[in-house]
Nucleic acid binder design. Structure first.
Lengths: 267, 267
DNA sequence: ACGCGAGTTTGGTATATACAAACCTATATG
DNA sequence: CATATAGGTTTGTATATACCAAACTCGCGT
């Protein structure tokens, strides 16, 4: 549905776009059947069939019985991506340490095509809401929904932020979700001055998080790290200064790790 | 190089095969440049360019500077696959428990297109050789190279095994690697009777493992679980009976979990 | 036995693909 | 400073190929 034809003509391979749409549909529909997929995309049965056969053959999808699902090859590829991403290697240990220290969920995320993708996560012993976090790993999040995401947005050029938001629109998840550009910009300014972002039940009711951006040696944003916990446990001074302190410290160490290791920015 | 044209005509989308080859090349070459890729595949520069543009646009790859690498979208997709695979959900806890009990590496793997893919792994506190295991997660292994793989092979029809081996050939990794069909078949028979497989430095010198297959409710193989440790620590009675016992127990529990949960076999 | 829906195969044609060659744009070289 | 060279991008075009439609097969419920 998204015409990317910016009038000119950056040539594209249509079959890849179609395949991509099918993969996305399969991921989205969980375990669709052949007809489910035919209904989802506007392509003839025969063609869909050929695509699915090909994708299965290449290991991108797998058919179990009459249901399709993404193939195991993607696990391998995903793992590859992680291991090649510097921020993952540089940050893994810190994430685990922070999770242990706080006892809560800690996420290491990066921005990808205007959304937030979780590269690594670790749960402390008090961490809750497994299901939510499971789902979060599976699907990218809007940057303005999360603390880590907002921390990254704050580092972007405001024009770029405007651009993103225009393309994505504001999806309201709770009554506290940011739903207009002014509020967002005001908050981004604040984040920039205080050095960290908070998410106060803006994505899930009863959940708060504190996040901060991780910048590479060339001052570009590489990703972000965040701590998430139920509002009951994350409040007062702990929420307003202790946790931010810990999060920023961790981010700082990761930045140093990045600096010393061979460096490349993701994206 | 793999002609899948069984003369007949299962129609395929050629562009997807090409894209797949490019992705594989990118994964294999780590962070290739444009020209690297042109050399790797036999396609004209212009065409490669169009493919890469499309793949980047769809999030399958990312260009950082002049280097290409697999895109972050694949992380998300891979995570999706894991979470949808019953054996992952059913086995995760047991893998962790086993890792804690033994203090060594524990792997949960499945078969995919005749190779072994790691779905989940956990390292006990004595586990070593991180680099090796990192690499293992990234690239599928030959089934006859590992304990878990052989355990799965033992459950297959022998004709299917012959088929696989004919297609893959025997790649010798150490002087103990199995390199002929008779030896393999003999060992598979033994595995079937004793209920578990061992890998005695057949893949990496100084490394042993013990693995066993996990079968679903419909008696098909879903995957396998294995413990890996240095030969020095894995020997004598511990190697020959204690560990096998633990591994089989874990597999058994996972099978029960599979039985009780909603069930689907991967692949 | 029959009909029906889900899934697969086939023919023909519009078109997307892939080559080649021209074209840029930086970086090395005389 | 001019020129050469390599890395990368764009364009025209013949042809392979992807796509639709319609025919077909298979399995299931009645």
């Amino acid at each position: 549905m998204d015409a990317d034809d910016s009038s000119g003509s950056p040539r594209r391979i249509k079959s890849i776009q179609t395949a991509s749409a099918l993969l996305e549909a399969i991921q989205y529909l969980e375990t669709p059947t052949f007809t489910d997929l035919c209904n989802e995309v506007e392509i003839s049965k025969g063609t869909v069939h050929t695509y699915l056969e090909t994708l299965e053959n290449e290991g991108f999808i797998a058919k179990s019985g009459s249901e399709y699902q993404l193939g195991v090859r993607l696990v391998t590829m995903g793992e590859s991506v992680r291991n090649q991403t510097d921020i993952y290697r540089a940050g893994q240990d810190e994430v685990e340490k922070l999770a242990e220290k706080t006892g809560e969920w800690v996420h290491l995320t990066v921005e990808c095509q205007g959304q937030e993708v979780t590269l690594y996560e670790s749960s402390g012993d008090r961490a809750i809401a497994m299901d939510y976090h499971l789902r979060m790993r599976e699907s990218p999040q809007y940057l303005y929904h999360t603390a880590a995401g907002k921390a990254m947005l704050a580092c972007f050029d405001r024009d770029r932020v405007r651009d993103l938001v225009n393309r994505q629109g504001f999806v309201q998840r709770t009554e506290k979700t940011i739903t207009d550009l002014e509020t967002l910009f005001a908050e981004l300014d604040q984040i920039q001055t205080q050095g960290y972002a908070v998410n106060d039940e803006e994505e899930v009711r009863g959940m708060r998080s504190v996040g901060t951006a991780i910048t590479g040696p060339d001052a570009t944003v590489c990703g972000a790290i965040s701590v998430t916990a139920p509002t009951s446990r994350l409040s007062g001074d702990y929420f307003e200064s202790e946790i931010p302190e810990l999060v920023m410290e961790a981010a700082n160490i990761i930045e140093v790790n990045l600096e010393t290791a061979g460096v490349e920015k993701p994206r």
